[in-house]
């Protein structure tokens, strides 16, 4: 049994060398991200941000891990910067420690953990954030280690537990690097055009068990693929 409390950044696991890397990353990354982000032209193709800002509903935002920087850029600029309270799940790895600190510096609260390894406590912490703090939660349903674009039920289960809607979000960029990581994450190049699609809110019925949630996860995967395709399609239009 452990006392109640949410684990955020914790450098007790880090070696002195790791701490130096984290320190260096903290000097460079937030500045670099803000600089890159300032060059992006972001367009919301589908979704109602003004409604989200006006009502500030507590939601689970779910998008593919490969598009984390695309949807993240949008969320930072259009929601978080305008007072929308958001938290995200960041892995317990050493890279996760750097990511968590950078994300917190940018205004997003973090919960350390994963929905697979140590997943129960992570889901319960996220549930508490949703139900007690009124902060929305963003996570990748195929994270933290994939397989890419295969939806695990964690995000749906979280929405079901907290009784809040799940908002699917997807993005595309007209020019981007792709990392060599498991998710082949998109890193939008400077001056990229980014298109974002936010789907209709999904309600997860409270009586669904694991088999039904697995079916819903497959539907969510198809929906995220469709939203991604529509975002990519919008980039073909000169209006974007």
């Amino acid at each position: 049994m452990i006392p109640r409390g949410d684990a955020a950044s914790d450098d007790s696991r880090l070696t002195p060398s790791d701490r130096r890397k984290v320190g260096l990353a903290m000097l460079v990354l937030p500045w670099l991200i803000r600089l890159l982000k300032s060059t992006y032209r972001i367009q919301l193709v589908e979704g109602d941000v003004e409604k989200l800002l006006a009502e500030k509903p507590t939601v689970v935002l779910a998008g593919w891990h490969e598009g984390l920087l695309l949807s993240g850029s949008f969320l930072l600029e259009r929601l978080v910067a305008r007072g929308f309270p958001l938290a995200m799940l960041v892995s317990l790895s050493r890279d996760g420690e750097i990511l968590a600190r950078v994300v917190e510096r940018l205004g997003i609260a973090t919960v350390r953990g994963s929905t697979s390894r140590g997943g129960l406590s992570s889901l319960r912490r996220l549930y508490r954030i949703l139900s007690k703090s009124g902060r929305s939660v963003g996570l990748a349903p195929d994270g933290p280690r994939g397989p890419a674009k295969r939806c695990q039920p964690g995000a749906l289960l979280l929405a079901q537990l907290a009784g809040v809607p799940l908002l699917p979000i997807a993005g595309a960029a007209d020019r981007a690097w792709r990392l060599g990581s498991w998710d082949r994450m998109f890193v939008p190049k400077p001056f990229a055009r980014i298109a974002i699609c936010i789907g209709e809110p999904l309600r997860v019925a409270p009586d669904l068990g694991s088999p039904e949630l697995a079916v819903e996860a497959e539907k969510l995967a198809r929906l995220l693929d469709e939203l991604t395709a529509r975002a990519a399609g919008a980039l073909q239009s000169p209006a974007c």
Binding site: R4, L120, L161
Partner: peptide
């Protein structure tokens, strides 16, 4: 899924983790 619901409710009702 239901086990997670049970855990969360137990934690909320009894104020434990």
């Amino acid at each position: 899924a239901r086990a997670l619901h049970l855990l969360v409710k137990l934690e909320d009702e009894l104020d434990i983790e």
